[in-house]
Design a protein around this nucleic acid. Structure first.
Lengths: 331, 331
DNA sequence: CTTTCCTGTGAAATCCTTTTCATTAAGCTG
DNA sequence: CAGCTTAATGAAAAGGATTTCACAGGAAAG
């Protein structure tokens, strides 16, 4: 149906080899032939069939990024980092969503096994560590944003333990001793790590861990609201609240506002992620900022490095985070 | 390097044709051969190379969805609709971002020309109508969310003119006669259409159009803030404000709040998109809801229909929108 | 003037499947 | 039992590119 390299060759009166050489900017092709071929390609509206090329070269120059859903707003910066780093090296990044379904994640990973893409980056994997480790033995795989305990695979993330600890230490530094934690029932590594940070901070300052001050819900804003209602309803309520995500923190603040709490004075709040809304929502939210763009960029750079070298680097890279202080902590 | 169909054939002591038949669940293969082949495939850990298959069949069963950036939060529902509709028919949807660059959009569209995907959906195209029309002649292309004036291509969207008109008519119905409009300088079709709706509503109620009441900015929240500051600073300020997006409306309300305006009474606000934050932000925002999931689903269904039939349907499908009334309009 | 070395080129192999076509063997019909 | 159909299979072509290898012809070197 469509124009092939053969048609071009015939029309330009050269062999397909020569057309291919023109296509790939090889050196050994005469000025004259080059002109003739490019002109014919133009005339016929020739567009090379990548499938042929990919099959022959066993390489697609494409990387798949797998996310749970497209929803998480801070993904967008990560994806931009990936996209730009890839493009700089002649790769394209394609995104696909697992719909939170491990089976569908495996279906998408199949694009890797079937040579439809050269590599894959998982932003929050749904398979278990053993499965991922095994896949990483034979395929170019990387994790981003979420590390996996005991998984031997290239990973780019932040130090969520330290980040959680930093946030809570800041609250303690402001003189607070009863600090609430709103986290998730889902045991994602980042939640677990941030909780661990919370505990370490308390420990370091000689504050006993009180299970009563910990609320586990979902990632939804509403869960933050419920959590805050629970915490502020305690006999001895906290004067500071750390939420493991901004969405949750905003939900929590919403409840506090509705109860007439003076945020930043009566109770202070700390979130995580520095999403756009954290400085749109009033009062502006203090939060942990993670280098989204940089993580996306680095994971692609390292992955491509792996694909080229053949000696895969399976290190865990932890990029630095920072605290962003705003009204919700009275700053 | 990896296991091919040949290796399987040899190990199972059959021809590659038979292996292929097993792979594709053809009928004419004996029980015994079937068993033997599947067992060998298992043992060798065989995974068919899709590139070979795709090349032979000239079909990838993959559709590319092109967005400006991954940022727009309401994209996620559209993408989910696309994903699920595609999966139901054995297709995968991959997403890629143009970074707002027309050149990069064309680069991505090249995946279509080079047979790397079977079809493409543009969520807000950056090329001009003539270019898209021409591409649509030879390729399976569709537009979603944003229609293009004078473009002969399959399109799934909502009636933005009517939606804008409905929103503004509602404001008028509440007794308001000075109605501000915050839109974008970018002349995207949806902005243009919503503005047109604004004008039609005024006209229909005999309210003269006053250019002073129209502020054009960007899609950013901050632009809403600036716009609101401008509008409320007028000698004869509006008592109702229609913003062409929720993000802008929230920015606008933020300014109003900071000035002590009683939202829902002194000034009422109407947004567009019904993003998650429109009912998290206090006061909750009245807005136009568009059927995101349904649009994504329909565009994929129609596109696949086109791919199969060969007689492309290039209609414009407009799905119904609805008004969501909340505190910002005093409801 | 012969030998060697480039340069430019084309024929053919290759990548991995699917699919067509031919062939064999077995089962059925009359 | 001859003649037909059907089921199961394999050999080989096809799909569209890249790449290897061989070769021709001209230039440079001796």
């Amino acid at each position: 149906m469509s124009v092939t390299i053969k048609d071009v060759a015939k029309a330009a009166n050269v062999s397909v080899a020569t057309v291919s050489r023109v296509l790939n900017k090889h050196s050994n092709v005469s000025e004259e032939a080059y002109e003739r071929v490019t002109k014919v390609m133009e005339q016929l509206g020739y567009s090379p069939n990548h499938l042929g090329r990919d099959l022959r070269k066993s390489e697609t120059k494409r990387i798949l990024a797998i996310t749970a859903s497209a929803e998480q707003s801070f993904y967008s910066e990560v994806l931009r980092g990936m996209e730009e780093a890839a493009f700089a090296q002649g790769y394209d990044v394609l995104f696909a969503a697992t719909r939170d379904d491990p089976k569908h994640e495996m279906h998408l990973l199949n694009m890797l096994f079937s040579h439809s893409v050269d590599g894959a980056v998982l932003l929050g994997a749904k398979q278990d560590a053993a499965t991922i480790s095994k896949l990483a033995e034979n395929h170019n795989i990387a994790l981003c944003l979420e590390r996996m305990e005991g998984c031997n695979v290239l990973t780019v993330t932040i130090d969520n333990v330290k980040a959680g600890k930093d946030a809570v230490s800041y609250l303690i530094g402001k003189g607070h001793r009863r600090i609430g934690l709103i986290s998730t029932e889902t045991r994602s590594q980042s939640s677990v790590d941030r909780e661990k940070g919370y505990r370490l901070a308390l420990e370091e300052h000689g504050i006993p861990y009180d299970e009563e001050l910990v609320y586990l819900g979902s990632y939804e804003t509403e869960s933050g609201t419920t959590g805050c209602k629970y915490l502020l309803g305690l006999d001895d309520p906290p004067t500071a609240i750390f939420a493991i995500s901004d969405m949750i923190a905003i939900g929590a603040m919403n409840y506090a506002i509705s109860k007439g709490v003076n945020i930043g004075k009566d109770v202070i709040f700390f979130g995580f992620d520095n999403i756009a809304y954290s400085h749109i929502f009033v009062p502006h939210l203090s939060t942990v900022e993670q280098p989204c763009y940089a993580q996306g960029k680095l994971v692609i750079e390292k992955l491509i490095e792996n694909m080229k070298s053949g000696i895969p680097d399976k290190s865990i890279y932890m990029l630095p985070h920072s605290l962003v202080l705003r009204e919700s902590t009275g700053d």
